[in-house]
Amino acid sequence: MNKNERNARYNAYVESKIPKTHNFPSLFYAFIIGGIICVLGQTIKDTLLSIFDTMTPQEASNWASIGLIFLASLLTGLGVFDDIGAIAGAGTIVPITGFSNSIASSALDFKREGIIFGMCSKMFIVAGPVIVNGVVASIVVGLIYLIIEAF
């Protein structure tokens, strides 16, 4: 038996040995907590709109995002967010709270290496790819829009 064949057999065997997890509870928590976070955002938005007559829906939804970002950073600082995240999984990662948590947790973690080279430079180790890919993709979309407009 050559090495590649042995490795392939071993990996297939390992795959069969990995215990099957119960998917349903984690899906359920992701659904519930993800839903609650979105409802919270909607509540902030609607409350602001009802209080301030001059506010546009766009402004209100920006404030809702910023409110959730604040909350997620605070919970991260207090050390609660990772406990919620361990239960909710994608339920806290996918909403804007996950973006905020990834920045705040990196900042907290690398504080020991100093403010400049630790905290500030490592802030985006997790969130960086999100911004980079989003920005590049949006520029591509904008360029395509310009090209279509030209014809």
Partner: peptide, 8 residues
């Protein structure tokens, strides 16, 4: 990953 990251 960072300690406080809310991943599973």
């Amino acid at each position: 990953m960072p300690l406080e990251l809310g991943n599973q």
